[in-house]
Write a protein that binds this DNA or RNA. Structure first.
Length: 470
DNA sequence: ATGTCC
């Protein structure tokens, strides 16, 4: 793959063949390493009908289903632009929520083991069913799919202020529960309020370093303050919705005269029955993911209150797997675009009207989950943010799960983390080994590349004190 | 990511 270095941290893949736009990759050659397969996916995405600007890739790009993870693609709705479930991924609305405690590391030290034991009991995780919320009446799942975090708060699992600090106020509009299949509902009903497995986690962290005091203060972050980060998605419900709608689009594509270089890029126009059906179901899954994080926040709050007498306040909740209809400037005109972000985080600039008033002046909080034993980051959106105001989403996997499990012994990793002062509460040792830090890129390098590429700025680094994993 | 293959 020929990459032309336009400027440091920004590479271009020139248009050729069926590409409608060029590819743009924000990274260094070091970070890209052996990314040949995922760069081929960047090229494939550039062929989608209606795509505008470029097929973008973030510094944490790696191979995914159809689209690369770390990919951003926007299509023009009025110009026949398509929506593709592969551009969102199987874990619809996977995202991150950060809460801050009214205590610092010193004050929490003696209570930390009790907090971790409490979280160990209170946080459902791992594959399969189990969640903190159980429906007790008719139509509750439907109301949750329409209301997201708002529904959870209305049911008593949070406070109104939480909603002001959620992307979209806690719920995506236009969820269409009639497009959520029976099987998706069956899988979803028993998993509300659960982490799931793989790289999903709940961590107790501390603010290790503040890089931007103004933004950190606006977000409510101070050095050594204790935080809780929750990284999870829409579990089996989102997975089933993706499966169902990929199949429907794969069948329907030919009727719209659409051909794609990879069947995993199945898509139809946004403005088509299949496109609207997917977006309606996707919005429902997005709300499920948000409600999921809201219910888990409530569970964590109860543990912190009981075990440490500490209160948790929401900083922000943002997804990194979603397609959204947004208005952006394209070639000097305002256009309605379907922006696919898959393993990429929305990063609205300072002053954006959709941001909560109390953080608007400094830009959107962007939450980047790192890997166990390393660090996570809080970033902020910047003016003129490229790629439709998007940035990275995490470290980015470099070893397969299989290779990680083969190379790393879970118990040894657990002991290593404990020696480094990180309390670990895994559900399985195998699961822990698959998520070993060495299986990922260096999250600090990914964040630095994103900042230098002009996509965001770094606000604070968080390091783990305790890890709860599936 | 995922009742890690209907």
């Amino acid at each position: 793959m020929e990459l032309v270095e336009e400027r440091p941290w920004r590479f271009r893949i020139e248009r050729r063949g069926a590409m409608r736009v060029p590819g743009v990759v924000f990274a260094s050659r070091d970070l890209l390493g052996d990314a040949e397969q995922s760069l081929e996916q960047v090229v494939n995405v550039a062929t989608l009908p209606g795509i505008v600007g470029a097929s973008y890739a973030m510094p944490d790009i790696h191979w995914g289903y159809g689209f690369p993870i770390g990919g951003v693609a926007a299509t023009d709705v009025e110009e026949g632009g398509v929506v593709s479930p592969g551009g969102v991924g199987f874990d619809i609305s996977c995202g991150v929520r950060l809460l801050v405690a009214d205590t610092d590391r010193r004050a929490l030290r003696s209570a930390l083991p009790a907090v971790m034991d409490g979280l160990d009991r209170a946080i459902p995780r791992g594959a399969g069913p189990g969640g903190v919320w159980r429906p007790t009446g008719q139509g509750q799942l439907e109301r949750l799919l329409e209301g997201g975090s708002r529904y959870a708060v209305a049911e008593g699992y949070g406070e109104d202020r939480d909603l002001a600090r959620c992307e979209d106020g806690g719920a995506v509009a236009d969820a269409d529960v009639t497009q959520v299949g029976e099987r998706a509902r069956e899988r979803g009903i028993g998993q509300v309020g659960s982490l799931g497995s793989a790289n999903h986690f709940l961590e107790v962290q501390r603010v290790a370093e503040v890089y931007d005091e103004t933004a950190a203060a606006a977000f409510g972050l101070a050095p050594d303050q204790v935080c809780v980060m929750i990284h999870c998605g829409s579990r089996g419900l989102g997975h089933q919705i993706c499966t169902d709608h990929v199949r429907a689009m794969d069948r329907a594509m030919a009727r719209y005269g659409i051909t794609v270089p990879d069947r995993q890029l199945a898509c139809t126009p946004v403005d088509s029955p299949e496109g609207r059906a997917y977006l309606g179901a996707m919005a429902a899954a997005a709300n499920y993911g948000r409600a999921n994080r809201q219910f888990l926040s409530d569970a964590a709050r109860r543990v912190f209150q009981r075990a440490a007498g500490a209160r948790l306040t929401l900083v922000y909740d943002v997804s990194h797997n979603l397609a959204k209809i947004e208005t952006h400037a394209v070639g000097g005109a305002r256009r309605r675009l379907c922006v696919h972000r898959k393993g990429a985080t929305r990063a609205f600039p300072p002053g954006h009207p959709d941001l909560p008033e109390d953080v608007r002046a400094v830009g959107q909080p962007v939450l980047i989950p790192g890997t166990m034993g390393t660090a996570s980051y809080v970033l902020a959106g910047v003016p003129g943010g490229d790629a439709f105001f998007s940035t990275c989403h995490g470290a980015g996997r470099v070893w397969s799960r299989h290779r990680a499990a083969r190379t790393v012994v879970g118990r040894e990793l657990g002991a290593r983390l404990e020696r480094d002062g990180i309390a670990v509460r895994p559900r399985s040792w195998r699961g822990l080994s698959e998520e070993a830090p060495e299986a990922y890129k260096d999250v600090s390098a990914v964040v630095a590349a994103s900042e230098r590429a002009g996509l965001c700025r770094t606000v604070a680094r968080l390091v783990p004190l305790g890890v709860v994993k599936g």
